[in-house]
Each structure stands twice: as structure tokens, then as C-alpha cells.
Design a binder for these strands. Structure first.
Length: 488
RNA sequence: GGCCCCAUCGUCUAUCGGUUAGGACACCAGGUUUUCAUCCUGGUAAGGGGGGUUCGACUCCCCCUGGGGUCACCA
């Protein structure tokens, strides 16, 4: 069978990390089986629409490395689409839904309902007070054909409801196995809303079928509405797709991951300096692990390893600490060109520095970065020497006199060294270590004051790195300042 | 509350009847080191409870408990 999966976001805001994982799993599954992956915009709720959400979604999927074969695309700033099963935006498919809903009414699987929202609300209230199941009472099912056509002709506001048959519905979930739900649990679901738009349930079934979707992989919160979809598939005589419901991603308190308890938008994490690669890797392992003894996977390795039957059943807490660790791993191991590209917006004040120097800063500082955003703070000292007290220059096992001696000698050493040496980190190190070795000094006596003189900080990267990034000229200046501090 | 889903270290997980229950994050202790960080070594830490099935259950079945999801003209 030719596998086809889909990711159907509704353009109501930013991409949720849970949605990122859903999109990712759909993508991985399709690629693993040589199938196709499509993106479809589910914008049937006109009230929750957010302008620009589709564009932002397309961009985010791209930066995160999830590509699709069919769906909406951006040509320049213009929205367009690719694929032969479009349109891929539900608001552009209204006639299709109307026709399908109509067909259901004709064959007696669905019916018109003229009940007002007020009546529905009143009904619900009464049922709640009586502690009954809140369910539509099928008031309009009793209407005769004549009355229906009269009210329709009069232009009365109405919806179309699916008539849920008696009995129960059983379906196979690829992750959870067989699930049975009694049809009595299900309300006569609205299929077409009064505004002429379909509800999710109608649109998703019609589109998935028309677009040839074979595997529906989505969040666990959808399990309880699968019977509605199964009933629709049967009513339309559409072949049944496979269902797989993913475990939820959880807040630390185990509730469904939500705003309020932290960031949930992929854009937030990207903005904070998490690498797309790390985020994808991390989120992929929330609910799925091919072996149990490996943590780092590229997206292609994930495709290779992906197996729907190995996806967990229970929810997974989104553990920010582990994401931090993984992000650090990526920062340290990723290709330096790619890292520089990603870090470009994170230099802050130091962004005015030449690229060559910024690359050096990144190379030196990446050892202690958790997120790229932290670079902004760390890079400042390369731009300007921070204020610091003279006492910081003194190593714990030495005194000010000793520090002054070494800094004075080092100053001479730097001044008399070929400028070309400062282009090579290892040559700088060699020269200073020679000074230490030849005189039988201890590393700390020499390196501590040098490092503090260069960084203005008691905690920083090493003196060789600093001298390399700063260059001879700036190095001389900073050492001179240090000597002044000690001797004044 | 009805219905549905779920249940291994604090967290993410491995185990598909027989293991000293493994790995990772975090944490703690060492080591490397001029500081911080990185890195390396080691350690603490888990099968919710009760019944079965079986020679033998973390693993299979049932009940309880606990957690979660869902009950819209939202997706």
C-alpha cells in the first residue's frame, strides 16, 4: 500500500510543540515507508482564525526541517500550494463539504436541525441539573419533509447533524490496539454549521478520503471522537484508514502541556536559542525510543529508526532540563558553519564585530552555552573590557606582586611576538607555556592573572582563547590596564 | 460524574515470562584543569496495591487505586 499521512493544523496561532511532534511522526512514518506527507490547513473555525498563522506555520516547518509533498507553500511572501489534491485549505473547499453533507441527508444518515443556540444551551443546562448526559434530544429529527423544505426556503438558520446509529463502534488503533466505544456516548454531531462551514469531523473525513490519506496519526485527545469518524466513513462507504493516537505531551504536573506552565510554541524555543535540530531530536524521543541507550539522532536517522508500534502509550512530561542538555550537545557538535548561521541573530552588541571575530567568539564560547541566546551576554566582554577590581587579578595561591611580575613579563612577551602568531591559537599557547616552563613557574601564577586581565572576569574561557579572539593589540591594552590597576 | 486511555528511578525510556531491572537527563562524589564550562570515572534512585495464570512474573488476565483525555454550530 502506498502510505500517505497528513498534518492538519488550524491556523489559530503558533506551532505547539505537541503539534510539532505530531507533524514529525507523520513525516517520519511517511518517509520510512516511502510514502507521501501532506499539510492541510483546517480553518473552518472563522472565529479563532489568526492572521499570518499559515505563513508562520510554513516557515516554522521549514526551519525545523520537516518537508511535505503536498500542501500550502510560500512563494516569496505569497501563499500558494503544491500537489494534485488541492485546494489544501478547507475554507476553499466549501462546495465539497456541502455536497457530501447533502448526500448524507438524502440517504438518511444526517438531518437538518433548526434549533437555536439558546434552546441547545437551555437543554444542556437542564440535563446538567438532572445529572443526565448532555446530548442533543433529536428535536429536529421528528420534523417532516414539508416543514423542512418550508423552513429551508424561508432561509431559516440551520445546521446538519449526523444521526448516530444505535450500537457500538470498534476500531483498531495502531498504538493501543482495539478500542470500543458505545454509540450512545456520542452526540448527534453537527456536520455543517449555520455559517455554511463544516465542522472538523465532516471536513477531516471528507478531506482525508479525497486526498488519499491512509494513516491518521494524531494526538490522544482525539480518541473519543474516532467513532464519529468511523460512522462517517461507513456512511460514505469510504475505505477505512488506519488510526494511531499518540500519547500526550505533559506539563510537569502531568496535565496536558499548556501555556501558563511554560512555553509551548516552537517559535518560542527557537527564539530562545534552541537549535531546530535539538528541538526535533528532543521532541521525537518524547514517546518513542528505538533502543533505549541512545539519545542523539539526526532527522534522517529518525526516519530510519521510526516504528509506529514502538510509540509509547503513556504521556510524556516535557522536561526542559533534558532539552537544555541536548541543546548543549548540539551546540558543541554541530557543523561550525551551520552553528554560525544559527547564532547570527544572537550576538547582541557584539554583532557589529567582523564575522571572522564572531566566528572565533562562537568557537570559544560554545563550550559553555546552553542556548544560543546566552551568547548575547557572553560576547559583551570581547567588545569592551568589563569593570573589575584589582584584587580579582590575584590568584588564590599568590599575591599582587607576583601577579604584577607575570603580567609585566607577559606584556613584553606579547609585544615582542610576531603578530602572525596571534592568528594561531596553538602558537599563542606554546609561547606562553614556554615562558612558564622555562622559568619553572606554576600555571596558576601566570594564567590566572592573564585570564582575568583579558576578560575582566573571574570566570571565563581560557587566556589562550581570549588572546586569540582579542588579538595582540587589544591584548596589550588590557594587560596594561591590569598592570595599572595593580600598581596604582 | 459518564465514557475512553494510561501506569518501570524525580524526568525521558529499555525490557516483548527466567536480567545483579539497562541507558540518558537531573542530583551527589571523585578526576582532568588557572577559573567557569566541557570532558572522564563512580554513586544515590524504579516495576502503585490486591488477586489469579505459571515451575517462574515488571512482563499475561481480573479488580482496586492513581493519573490523564473527552463529553461545543473549537480544532
Amino acid at each position: 500500500m502506498n502510505v500517505k499521512t497528513r498534518f492538519p493544523p488550524s491556523p489559530t496561532g503558533f506551532l505547539h510543540v505537541g503539534s510539532l511532534r505530531t507533524a514529525l511522526y507523520n513525516y517520519l512514518f511517511a518517509k520510512k515507508h516511502g510514502g507521501t506527507f501532506i499539510v492541510r490547513v483546517e480553518d473552518t473555525d472563522r472565529e479563532r482564525l489568526v492572521e499570518g498563522a499559515v505563513e508562520s506555520l510554513i516557515r516554522t516547518l521549514k526551519t525545523v526541517g520537516i518537508s511535505y509533498d503536498e500542501g500550502p507553500i510560500l512563494v516569496g511572501d505569497k501563499l500558494s500550494e503544491k500537489g494534485g489534491n488541492g485546494p489544501y485549505t478547507q475554507s476553499q473547499r466549501l462546495p465539497i463539504y456541502k455536497e457530501h453533507a447533502q448526500k448524507l441527508v438524502e440517504q438518511g444518515s444526517a438531518y437538518y436541525c433548526f434549533c437555536s443556540k439558546e434552546r441547545l444551551e437551555e437543554l444542556r443546562n437542564q440535563q446538567q441539573i438532572a445529572k443526565l448526559q448532555t446530548k442533543y434530544d433529536r428535536h429536529c429529527l421528528k420534523l417532516d419533509a414539508q416543514e423542512i423544505s418550508r423552513r429551508l426556503a424561508a432561509g431559516e438558520s440551520h445546521v446538519i447533524r449526523l444521526q448516530i446509529p444505535d450500537g457500538e463502534t470498534t476500531f483498531q488503533d495502531e498504538i493501543r490496539g482495539s478500542i470500543t466505544i458505545s454509540n450512545s456516548e456520542i452526540d448527534d454531531q453537527v456536520l455543517m454549521k449555520a455559517d455554511g462551514f463544516p465542522t472538523y469531523h465532516l471536513a477531516v473525513v471528507v478531506d482525508d478520503h479525497l486526498m488519499g490519506v491512509t494513516h491518521i496519526i494524531r494526538g490522544e485527545e482525539w480518541i473519543s471522537s474516532v467513532p464519529k469518524h468511523v460512522i462517517l466513513y461507513k456512511a460514505f462507504r469510504f475505505p477505512m484508514p488506519s488510526f494511531a493516537h499518540l500519547p500526550l505531551i505533559l506539563n510537569p504536573d502531568k496535565s496536558k502541556l499548556s501555556k501558563r506552565q511554560g512555553d509551548v510554541a516552537v517559535e518560542d524555543y527557537l527564539e530562545k536559542g534552541y537549535l531546530p535540530e535539538a528541538l526535533v531530536n528532543f521532541v521525537a524521543l518524547l514517546g518513542f525510543n528505538p533502543t533505549g541507550d541512545r539519545e542523539i539522532y539526526t532527522i534522517d536517522e529518525l526516519i530510519e529508526a521510526f516504528d509506529l508500534t514502538k510509540v509509547n502509550k503513556s504521556g510524556a512530561v516535557f522536561d526542559r532540563t533534558k532539552l537544555d542538555w541536548m541543546n548543549g550537545q548540539y551546540i558543541r557538535s554541530i557543523d561550525s558553519k551551520r552553528l554560525f548561521e544559527l547564532a547570527q541573530p544572537c550576538f547582541g552588541d557584539a554583532s557589529t564585530l567582523p564575522d571572522e571575530q564572531k566566528k572565533k567568539i562562537l568557537g570559544v564560547e560554545k563550550e559553555r552555552l546552553v542556548t544560543l541566546k546566552e551568547l548575547e551576554e557572553r560576547a559583551k566582554m570581547y567588545l569592551a573590557l568589563p569593570e573589575y577590581p584589582a584584587t580579582d587579578l590575584v590568584w588564590k595561591k599568590a599575591d599582587a606582586q607576583d601577579a604584577t611580575l607575570h603580567l609585566t613579563n607577559l606584556l613584553k612577551l606579547v609585544e615582542s611576538t610576531e603578530p602572525a602568531v596571534f592568528d594561531r591559537r596553538e602558537l599563542i599557547e606554546e609561547a606562553i607555556k614556554k615562558y612558564i616552563g622555562d622559568n619553572g613557574y606554576q600555571n596558576g601564577n601566570v594564567l590566572w592573572p592573564l585570564r582575568v586581565a583579558l576578560s575582566g572576569q573571574t570566570q571565563s574561557s581560557g587566556p589562550f582563547d581570549l588572546l586569540w579572539v582579542l588579538g595582540a593589540h587589544e591584548g596589550i591594552q588590557r594587560i596594561t590596564i591590569a598592570i595599572d590597576k595593580l600598581t596604582s
